[in-house]
Nucleic acid binder design. Sequence first.
DNA 1: ACAAGTTGGTTATGCGCCTAACTATTATGC
DNA 2: GCATAATAGTTAGGCGCATAACCAACTTGT
Lengths: 147, 147
Amino acid sequence: MNFDQADAINQAIRRLSLRHRARTAALLAPLGLHPGQEALLLELARTGPMIQAQLSEALGVEPPSVTLMTRKLEASGHIRRAPAPSDKRASIVELTDSGKALTDQVKRLWCALAEETVTGLPAQTVAELPGVLNTLSGNVDARRLAV
Amino acid sequence: MNFDQADAINQAIRRLSLRHRARTAALLAPLGLHPGQEALLLELARTGPMIQAQLSEALGVEPPSVTLMTRKLEASGHIRRAPAPSDKRASIVELTDSGKALTDQVKRLWCALAEETVTGLPAQTVAELPGVLNTLSGNVDARRLAV
DNA sequence: ACAAGTTGGTTATGCGCCTAACTATTATGC
DNA sequence: GCATAATAGTTAGGCGCATAACCAACTTGT
């Protein structure tokens, strides 16, 4: 592949990352959330209580990041951490009532954001979008590459 | 749009951002670069010497980020900053010889990364990819929205 | 010509994410 | 049964990115 094509792709991914994150930040700010935290809340809402290692895997983020994110979300009262009875190393993370309420609001924003994001694209492209993007992610996933 | 569709899109973008950045970091590490810096070098190679405000605009990044990035790249000898003769506030940024050589290496990595990224996708999808991604970015671009 | 507004840049601070190095617990192999 | 390895989590430090607040220099309006 020549450089111009490659650059167009890489640069487009970079710009999308920056702009989508910035837009997410702007939408979450009124809720007192920072981008990244919404993913943790949504994952807990989807899967139910889970330990940090599972969150790390599900979010595609390293354990130290989970430590800090959970600490902050716990401090703001949206999640709760309790020691796991079966494994003294692990701590179980779950949504509080306030966290559940907040997650409902996040879900609404999430729909608005997705609609805004795909505006102007043909329906078929939109339908194929998640698959295409996940192929891209999978292709550069260091974890998968390492296996 | 229902939540599942929206989440599929937003989550796919998030994962792509994380994984593509991580892969970029892994590829740039041997060159002593961190992700983000390559964009600055490539922009300087593409456009020639420019002031930081132009870099900020071209990279889609805020001025304070440019201040820190240029400072670090200057410290490692890849770029040079000189006061602009016509405007005493501005500083002109340009590649050093070492920076030019490094950028050539970055270009090679850039091609390899793009090829790796789009592996397994049909040629037409790849051809349309930059346009689609730029549409997405444009749709959530706060600058465009503000206008 | 000068006050007022705009623009270029920096400093301070905070967040998410990372790697490296560490502790504490659990699982494994001989 | 005990040393060794693997796993859960934390701490420390670094980078890119952001916003807020600020200074210095340029531009503009009257």
